[in-house]
Design a protein around this nucleic acid. Structure first.
Lengths: 243, 243
DNA sequence: CCAAAAGTGTTGCAGATACACCCATGT
DNA sequence: ACATGGGTGTATCTGCAACACTTTTGG
């Protein structure tokens, strides 16, 4: 089982980014058009290889965020999503990819920027439904990222990462509605989020002008876990099963 | 930013295992004593390098499970936990490690087996409290694994992976009590788990003999998510915080 | 004044806790 | 008989969904 002189095989390590945001009330992910083979011309997640052999994984994710999406990592939520290493996932050879999940507030327009003038926001629904195919195993990675985001809304203040530094409660509600794909009662939502200590904190007495009564502004609080959680309503039919 | 002839750096890829089980009502993790430098003689997680450059990650985890722990992967719960790639985590050079979480039912004794006659179960409390130091960043990996297990008990049937193929409800309760470190009311627990469709299904009318009334036996059901969830009681003081 | 959005009060129901109680077996 | 653990019934508590209602703004 163990040879005398054996040395472990090396692999190429890549970092891919699932960058989620809200664009006109729809959960969207940033895609870039691949400029080179393989999968040239296909939409794919932003990402790339480790730059040098001692680059930290998270640092590499932050670097790609700047290069490919022209986004500033400080201010954004960034967490490791998972590692994808099926042997045949890249035709060039053995490439193992560490995926990161990034949550960004709504931004002006695509992204005037650097490497990726071809970057574009795509509603995740198009990908989850299979209408739009991505390069490599990136569809699976997006699916996992969306799933992670949906679950974390319940137990963490992740939703605030979709908002600007200050936000109204109804803006926060729109995040939950878009990510979960449900409708919520604004009156109950209003009290529910305020009942969670440390979730949101009042941000002065400022007001923004729309039609109707002006709303109070809030900032994200310091809490990292939500007690009690914001429970997601059962969507369809949780029928009785085997016992 | 992009050189003409540049090729991405290769790294060494390892797989580490956090194998959790219950031993006399305590949540425990399998550790092996390192036989070689670095950290020779220190306790560490079972694991090792990818064997050949096209070995699948999950397959490598299963192989290590056999070699180092003499455990049969079919029958055990195994899921990816996370990837640890701090540049200086291994003094031999750049090693990135993909950690897997394994849940095993209580087993006879340490592990008569192969490579690892020196394998031993250690209560996780000794590690979380900092009393026992592990090689590399393995303390962090164990912490993350325990955290993952604690959270998944609420929303998935993970607890059944700690039990034998058939089990009584009070055995299942002991899993929750040991992993969460709380006490639960057996009568309410009894009905709560039965109220979740597809969580556990009755396994014949068999009975096991102890003192007291014999209990019914159950098997794990087909459900992968629990509706409603088994909520963990608040442990300490969720005091009011900033608003 | 009216429409629209923010914010408050109240009620009824569902699920959970706490605990009294009954059941089946070993010694 | 009685100790021990399995299992059931039920009163009470609590949180939440539902929705009527008030407040504050723009047009």
């Amino acid at each position: 089982m163990s040879d005398e002189a054996w040395s472990p095989p090396a692999v190429l390590l890549a970092v891919d980014l699932v960058i989620l945001t809200l664009r006109d009330s729809r959960l969207s992910v940033l895609l870039v058009e691949r400029g080179i083979e393989p999968h040239q011309g296909d939409p794919a997640l932003p990402g790339g290889f480790l730059q040098h052999s001692c680059e930290d994984l998270r640092a590499a994710a932050i670097r790609e965020l700047n290069e490919e999406a022209a986004l500033d990592a400080s201010r954004l939520h960034l967490e490791q999503l998972g590692t994808y290493g099926t042997p045949d996932r890249d035709p060039r050879g053995r490439v193992v990819s560490v995926a990161y999940l990034v949550i960004a507030p709504a931004l002006p327009e695509p992204i005037a920027g650097t490497d990726a003038a071809d970057a574009s926001w795509t509603p995740v629904e198009e990908i989850l439904s299979g209408d739009r195919r991505l390069a490599f195993d990136h569809e699976e990675i997006v699916t996992d990222g969306v799933e992670r985001a949906r679950n974390k809304l319940e137990h963490s203040p992740l939703a605030t990462a979709f908002c600007d530094k200050t936000f109204t409660i109804s803006q926060l509600q729109q995040v939950y509605e878009a990510v979960w794909g449900v409708e919520l009662d604004p009156r109950n939502f209003y009290r529910k989020v305020q009942a969670v200590p440390g979730f949101i904190v009042s941000a002065g007495t400022e007001r923004r002008s729309t039609r109707g009564r002006p709303a109070r502004l809030f900032r994200a609080g310091s809490r990292t876990t939500l007690h009690p959680p914001l429970v997601r309503p059962d969507p369809p039919n949780p029928k009785e099963e085997e016992r």
